[in-house]
Simulated assay, not measured.
Amino acid sequence: MSSGYHAIPNLIGLYAERIDAGDYAGVGELFAHAVITAEGRDLKVAGADAARAMFEAWTRRYPDNGTPHTRHVTTNLILDVDDDAGTGTCRSYVTVFQALPDFPLQPVFTGRYHDTFERPEGTWRFTRRHMITDYVGDLSRHLNQSL
């Protein structure tokens, strides 16, 4: 049974790795037992299929390699884990960088994640992700919809 202090940052890292790879089905799997919400928006997405569909609808993928040409950098993780109870929370910052041949590398989004986790049957998983937008740059190449 792994400690939440190791498993939770790994889940957060897997999210960044999968979304940057354009693996929206894999992102959906991470949120199979979770609800995703967003500050100031009427958004409530629950389960793997709904999460995959949301990221496919919102996040552009490019035909050259099937990715959004982004790097999600998650920092300032503040973990609160109760390994005995199998529960945890994490607050973190996210900065999304994007680069394309005609779009120089730049930050296009910053925000925060407020996540909760549980460990049923020994495996840690997301139960909630609340997304907060702080600063927005040029999202014209990243999102299919406006924030």
Rank of each mutant, 00 (worst) to 15 (best):
D134H: 14
D115E: 14
A57P: 02
G47K: 13
Q145N: 11
R61M: 12
H114Q: 12
A7D: 04
H130V: 04
V96Y: 11
G88H: 05
D23K: 00
Q145P: 04
M1G: 09
Y15R: 01
F103W: 10
D49R: 14
D102A: 06
F103A: 04
Y15M: 02
D82P: 00
F97I: 09
G40M: 14
G13Q: 06
P9R: 10
I12P: 00
R112S: 05
Y93M: 10
Q145I: 09
V96Q: 12
V94F: 02
P63I: 06
F103M: 06
D49I: 05
L77V: 04
H33M: 14
L11S: 00
D23T: 01
D23C: 02
A32I: 01
Y135Q: 07
V136Y: 03
F31C: 00
F55K: 02
L14G: 01
G28T: 10
T70N: 06
I19R: 02
W124D: 01
H130T: 07
R119K: 15
V81K: 03
F97V: 09
S2K: 07
L143Q: 06
H114R: 14
S146G: 10
C90H: 01
F103T: 03
A53T: 11
F109D: 10
T110S: 12
A21G: 02
P107V: 11
H114D: 11
F126P: 02
I36A: 03
V136C: 02
I8R: 01
N10D: 09
T37W: 14
G47H: 13
T110F: 12
T75N: 08
D83W: 11
S3R: 11
H72F: 06
M1Q: 13
V81P: 02
H6A: 14
L100W: 11
V45S: 06
W124I: 00
Y5H: 05
P104Y: 14
I132Q: 03
N10S: 08
Y5Q: 00
A48F: 10
T116S: 12
G88K: 03
F31Q: 03
T116W: 10
L30R: 01
L14H: 01
G66A: 10
P68I: 04
V94T: 07
D49T: 11
A7V: 05
A32G: 06
I12D: 05
P63N: 11
T74F: 09
D82K: 04
T133I: 10
E118S: 11
D80L: 06
T123Y: 13
A51H: 05
A25L: 15
S2H: 13
I132C: 01
A48M: 12
L43G: 13
F31Y: 15
F97S: 10
F31P: 01
D102H: 06
H142S: 05
A38P: 02
Q106H: 13
H33E: 15
Y62A: 08
R129F: 03
L14Q: 04
A34S: 15
T67M: 07
L11R: 05
H72A: 04
T74S: 11
I8W: 00
A25C: 07
W58N: 08
Q106W: 14
R61G: 03
L30G: 00
F126N: 02
R112N: 08
V96N: 08
S2L: 10
I132G: 00
D115P: 00
A50V: 07
T133Y: 09
H142K: 04
D102S: 08
E121Y: 09
S140R: 05
H69K: 06
V35N: 12
L30E: 04
D134P: 01
W124H: 02
H6D: 13
Q98M: 13
T123K: 15
D20I: 00
